[in-house]
Amino acid sequence: MTKQTSTAKVELRGVKKRFGNKVVLDGVDLKLEHGQSLVVIGGSGTGKSVMIKCVLGIIRPDEGEIYVDGKEVTRLSGRARDAMLKKFGMLFQAAALFDSLPVWENVAFGLIQGRGMGRKQAREIAVETLGKVGLGPEVAKLSPAELSGGMQKRVGLARAIASDPEIIFFDEPTTGLDPIMADVINDLIVSTVDRLGVSALSITHDMVSARKIADRIAMLYQGKIVWDGPTEEIDKSGNEYVEQFIHGRAEGPIKMEVRK
């Protein structure tokens, strides 16, 4: 039997994951096309983070397949996985900067450790990349702890794009930022994706951010994609889950779950 190959940049097919008795992903099907910016929306604890960690191989799914550039990567390990991960950049929710290293080494980390580039050259690229996210060279030698939340996000973005990834994941890029800084980050994401021509997958519960950065929006609820469509159509989705979520209503089919 020949397996059907995938033409999308990243594709998830029937991905399932449970922790103990709790089913987190219950058969997720999702496609990220080349050069597209896809945003997955959903409430807290609906498994958005678990989904992207499955793609990155940080969490191993129980069932289903994940394809990157048409190749199945679900059960890769060791060097094959490291090689696959070179295509990815990731901006973590709380930036996840290495606090033992100065800003420039954070940005240059993938170049030095992942690609074996010399420190001097890596530092030049790091400073240049910091410039792309609107940070001056004076930031390079600071420690991450000295930066504000918004600044840390920018450094995190610089780290994600420093090694020229083909795919960037954004985990709650605007969470914890004031509205102005959130908009700055949104603009940076849009311009980065446009300029670098990368494919982007973001997860968020911030609808303002989703509308701004997405070409396409998908909604995750109870471990399944319940709606998927172009950003323009989100207001006439006709889907009661999407309706409740984008208008932020307490009443509706979505029930708050107490336990994670």
């Binding site: 191989g57 490291d82 090689a83 991960l85 990731m90 709380a94 992942g114």
Partner: peptide, 16 residues
């Protein structure tokens, strides 16, 4: 490092 996702970040930067 684990709870602030720095260990996951290492993995995404192709570092074991």
């Amino acid at each position: 490092m684990r709870v602030t996702e720095q260990i996951d970040a290492l993995t995404t930067l192709s570092t074991n």
